[in-house]
């Protein structure tokens, strides 16, 4: 089993489910890619949530302020036109639900994972860098003329049973 393809599939399912359930809206067909963990310039909103356990890494949602305001408006059923505490909170919760769902569905394959409290950044011309991150799974969703990205980086820790299996030269179904 290819872990990155599994992450792509689960992100697609989780994001579609969160948008239909909490926002009563449908995302467009996702496009996935693998990106190197280079620092990148950001404008808009980036949220992060940490994952730890047998595998460790970070989940992230990236979107424009306009998309964030629309997420908040749909989630809270209020009209929101500028980025305020409610908008940042809505994006944090969106991240928590999408990455949390992916985490739950990955656990049967990767072992128990813990989820941190999400952090949201809003600004212009800022760079983000996750220590240790190599390849990110990036899934872009078209949504009402805009784009929302969900990113995930996960790598096995020394506690991962399959990492031990690989080190010992044993058979392991996971392709890392």
């Amino acid at each position: 089993m290819n872990v990155q393809q599994l992450m792509i599939d689960l992100i697609g399912q989780a994001a579609a489910n969160v948008f239909s359930t909490m926002l009563d809206s449908q995302l467009g067909a996702p496009e996935a890619s693998i990106e190197k963990g280079m620092p990148e310039v950001n404008d808009g909103i980036v949220s992060f949530i940490g994952l730890a356990g047998a595998w460790a890494g970070t989940g992230s949602v990236v979107c424009s302020p306009e998309v964030a305001c629309r997420v908040c408006s749909r989630m809270l059923m209020t009209e929101t036109t500028s980025v305020d505490a409610d908008v940042l909170d809505a994006v944090a919760e969106l991240t928590n639900m999408i990455v949390g769902s992916v985490k739950n569905d990955l656990e049967p394959h990767l072992g128990t994972l813990g989820l941190s409290i999400p952090t949201v950044v809003f600004g212009r011309n800022f760079r983000t860098k996750s220590a240790g991150a190599a390849d990110w799974v990036v899934v872009r969703f078209p949504w009402e003329g805009d784009v929302l990205q969900v990113k995930l980086f996960l790598a096995p820790t020394e506690r991962a049973p399959h990492a031990v299996a690989h080190m010992m030269g044993q058979t392991c179904p996971l392709e890392v």
């Binding site: 908040c72 059923m77 909170d89 944090a92 928590n96 409290i117």
Partner: peptide, 12 residues
Amino acid sequence: DDSAAIRKILQR
């Protein structure tokens, strides 16, 4: 809930 958004949704 630490999310004000979820607290508002649950209130509704």
